[in-house]
Amino acid sequence: MKTSHLILTGAAVLALGLGGAAIAQTRSSVSNQPIGYGADTGELTNTAVSLRGRAEITQGDTRLRANAIEGARDASGALTRIEATGEVYYVTPNETIRGNRAVYTVSNATVVVTGDVILTQGQNVLTGGSLTYNVDSGQARIEGGGGQNSGRVRGVFYPNGTN
Results as ranks from 00 to 15, higher is better:
residue 61 D to E: 13
residue 43 E to Q: 11
residue 152 R to C: 08
residue 27 R to T: 10
residue 2 K to N: 11
residue 66 A to M: 10
residue 87 E to I: 10
residue 138 G to R: 02
residue 84 A to H: 09
residue 134 N to A: 14
residue 133 Y to G: 04
residue 126 L to K: 09
residue 136 D to V: 13
residue 32 N to Y: 06
residue 157 F to I: 00
residue 122 G to R: 05
residue 132 T to E: 09
residue 34 P to D: 06
residue 88 V to R: 00
residue 111 V to S: 09
residue 76 S to R: 13
residue 96 T to Y: 04
residue 92 T to M: 03
residue 160 N to A: 15
residue 92 T to C: 01
residue 64 L to A: 08
residue 119 L to R: 08
residue 123 Q to T: 12
residue 15 A to Y: 05
residue 135 V to E: 03
residue 63 R to S: 15
residue 23 I to F: 01
residue 86 G to E: 02
residue 19 G to C: 02
residue 4 S to V: 07
residue 68 A to L: 04
residue 162 T to K: 15
residue 57 I to L: 04
residue 21 A to N: 08
residue 128 G to K: 06
residue 126 L to E: 07
residue 103 V to Y: 11
residue 71 G to P: 11
residue 44 L to F: 11
residue 77 G to Q: 04
residue 13 V to K: 07
residue 23 I to A: 03
residue 112 V to P: 10
residue 10 G to A: 12
residue 1 M to V: 11
residue 55 A to C: 11
residue 25 Q to D: 10
residue 39 A to S: 15
residue 142 I to D: 06
residue 123 Q to E: 05
residue 72 A to H: 06
residue 49 V to P: 11
residue 95 E to W: 06
residue 125 V to W: 01
residue 160 N to K: 14
residue 29 S to T: 12
residue 131 L to W: 10
residue 2 K to W: 03
residue 58 T to H: 06
residue 34 P to S: 04
residue 132 T to I: 06
residue 60 G to Q: 09
residue 112 V to Y: 11
residue 35 I to E: 00
residue 151 G to Y: 01
residue 18 L to I: 09
residue 132 T to G: 01
residue 136 D to L: 01
residue 3 T to L: 14
residue 104 Y to I: 04
residue 129 G to F: 00
residue 36 G to I: 02
residue 90 Y to A: 05
residue 58 T to Y: 08
residue 1 M to G: 14
residue 17 G to E: 12
residue 93 P to Q: 01
residue 146 G to F: 00
residue 72 A to F: 04
residue 68 A to Y: 15
residue 52 R to H: 03
residue 122 G to L: 07
residue 126 L to G: 13
residue 44 L to S: 04
residue 100 N to V: 12
residue 116 D to E: 13
residue 30 V to E: 03
residue 80 T to C: 00
residue 147 G to K: 05
residue 31 S to H: 12
residue 25 Q to M: 12
residue 11 A to G: 13
residue 31 S to T: 11
residue 47 T to N: 11
residue 152 R to A: 13
residue 106 V to G: 00
residue 78 A to Y: 10
residue 108 N to T: 12
residue 33 Q to W: 09
residue 3 T to Q: 14
residue 7 I to E: 05
residue 116 D to R: 07
residue 37 Y to K: 02
residue 122 G to K: 14
residue 64 L to D: 03
residue 43 E to W: 06
residue 2 K to C: 01
residue 137 S to P: 00
residue 84 A to C: 05
residue 111 V to T: 14
residue 99 G to Q: 08
residue 19 G to Y: 06
residue 42 G to F: 15
residue 38 G to C: 00
residue 158 Y to M: 06
residue 155 G to Y: 10
residue 67 N to E: 15
residue 67 N to Q: 14
residue 28 S to E: 15
residue 119 L to W: 14
residue 110 T to Y: 02
residue 34 P to N: 05
residue 106 V to D: 00
residue 20 G to D: 00
residue 36 G to V: 11
residue 43 E to C: 03
residue 98 R to S: 09
residue 56 E to L: 14
residue 82 I to M: 02
residue 108 N to M: 02
residue 131 L to T: 09
residue 101 R to F: 13
residue 36 G to C: 03
